[in-house]
Design a protein around this nucleic acid. Structure first.
Length: 229
DNA sequence: ATGACGATTTACT
DNA sequence: GTAAATCGTCATA
């Protein structure tokens, strides 16, 4: 009996435009479990499972770079179409990687805060080590991508990727992974936005509760069970 | 031209 | 726990 292989859906399906064209909170939740892929110029594949995200909700969100409608050279990519990369430089030394959500001219985005490394761990370790002082303590696996700037170091994401289309780019994109189940997900307030008044307290951070690659454990008072989506 | 400020990380007490 | 590192960007003058 001839068995033409069934027309399988590849387990390495790139996420398309439709995956990103939703509100930032929904996207932040859905990105947990998806795979972020970086292909180096020499073809090396670096990849990790997304385990922590934050949503930035647009011009009304005091913690967002576009608060009040601010639109500058730096944050211009936030206004681009969904699936665009928004990469910014901060603290004079760090990069952070976001994925634009929503619609054109609606500046909402999801910050990728942590990955569970899957492919290319040694290359990640080399890149992370190069950003540290010589002779410092060896990096554990959980030191590779357990924060937004660490993730950018490990994957070699810098401002050169600002504005690229993640549905098309050859060197940076997302692949479909198993969605995270509700009982594995927790929410908390966002990290590092304490000056944003009432917006600082909103539970717009999503993470896999028991995953060791998550950047920071929230204070108990900030923990939310993810029952409400 | 100048000054204040980070969606962070690291090392150290 | 606290503090330093380090500089592009933007608002003000």
């Amino acid at each position: 009996m001839s068995t033409c292989p069934p027309r399988t859906v590849s387990n390495r399906t790139r996420l398309g435009r439709g995956s990103y064209a939703t509100d930032a909170a929904t996207l932040a939740r859905r990105l947990l479990g998806q795979t972020l892929v970086r292909v180096l110029d020499d073809g090396t594949r670096l990849a990790g499972r997304i385990v922590e995200t934050e949503a930035y909700l647009g011009v009304q969100d005091r913690a967002a770079h576009c608060f009040g409608g601010r639109r500058t050279r730096r944050n211009e990519a936030m206004y681009a179409k969904p699936g665009t990369a928004y990469v910014y430089f901060t603290y004079g030394m760090h990069h952070c990687f976001n994925i634009v959500a929503g619609r054109v001219d609606e500046p909402t985005a999801v910050l990728i805060r942590a990955l569970e490394p899957v492919d290319g761990l040694e290359a990640m370790r080399a890149r992370r080590s190069a950003h540290r002082r010589p002779g410092s303590r060896p990096l554990r696996e959980t030191d590779l991508c357990s924060g937004p700037a660490k993730t950018c170091q490990a994957l070699g994401i810098d401002r050169g990727f600002n504005g690229v289309d993640l549905t098309r780019d050859a060197h940076l994109f997302l692949e479909r992974g198993a969605p995270a189940s509700d009982n594995a997900v927790q929410r908390s307030a966002r990290i590092g936005v304490q000056s944003a008044g009432a917006w600082a307290d909103r539970p717009l951070r999503w993470f896999l509760a028991s995953n060791p690659h998550v950047s920071i454990r929230p204070r108990a008072a900030d923990e939310w069970k993810s029952a409400c989506q």
